[in-house]
């Protein structure tokens, strides 16, 4: 019984056939799992770009302001709408409790997206395509993205960032 000391020399008891079989299956499965993530990392189409850099909030803020001034095409609900050219560096700035600017992107074109926060951690959750990137203050999280669907997208914050967290909603367009 598992509540009492086992009989002497329990380590000499050989494993049963069933146990050996299950162990083999389990080891193969563990190896499969281990190889699958790197495999998907090299063959999959939705993977981190592994580019990141430390950046101060002020510097990032200034870079976003410059980006907006350069490519601003309009305004919506008080936020700048920005239409950057293909293959350019694009920015989304998270702060309590807004995402800005509103990006207007083209389908099938690659951009270098820079994400950072001026205050707390935020979660850039793009709906309804549904993906989430962590946005961390002090860090520029860089992703090479190519939009594959057109439409209107909503950016929700899904990392708790303060009492107004649930009002932190932004917009993005792809045409």
């Amino acid at each position: 019984m598992s509540l009492q000391s086992p009989q002497k020399y329990w380590w000499d008891e050989p494993l049963d056939k069933d146990e050996k079989m299950w162990l083999t299956v389990a080891i193969i499965w563990a190896l499969f799992l281990t190889l699958f993530m790197p495999y998907m990392h090299y063959t999959g189409k939705q993977n981190p770009s592994q580019e990141y850099a430390k950046i101060s909030g002020d510097k990032f803020d200034a870079a976003v302001d410059k980006f907006i001034a350069q490519y601003k095409v309009g305004e919506e609900a008080g936020f700048a709408v920005v239409a950057p050219p293909p293959n350019s560096d694009i920015f989304i700035r998270g702060k309590q409790f807004t995402w800005d600017p509103i990006l207007k992107l083209k389908k099938g074109v690659q951009y270098k997206l820079h994400l950072s926060s001026l205050d707390m951690n935020h979660g850039l959750s793009v709906q309804p395509v549904n993906f989430t990137i962590q946005v961390v203050p002090g860090w520029d999280n860089i992703l090479n993205i190519t939009p594959t669907t057109t439409g209107v997208f909503t950016i929700i914050c899904n990392e708790y960032c303060g009492l107004g967290h649930h009002t932190m909603v932004g917009r993005m367009y792809v045409d």
Binding site: A77, N158, Y160, H166, T167, M168, V169
Partner: peptide
Amino acid sequence: GSFGVPRRHWDITLADAPFKYSF
């Protein structure tokens, strides 16, 4: 969660947000 509904979120109807979205 598979629809992207966030955790730790008081109002997923986003009633007080500047942009509207419904799950």
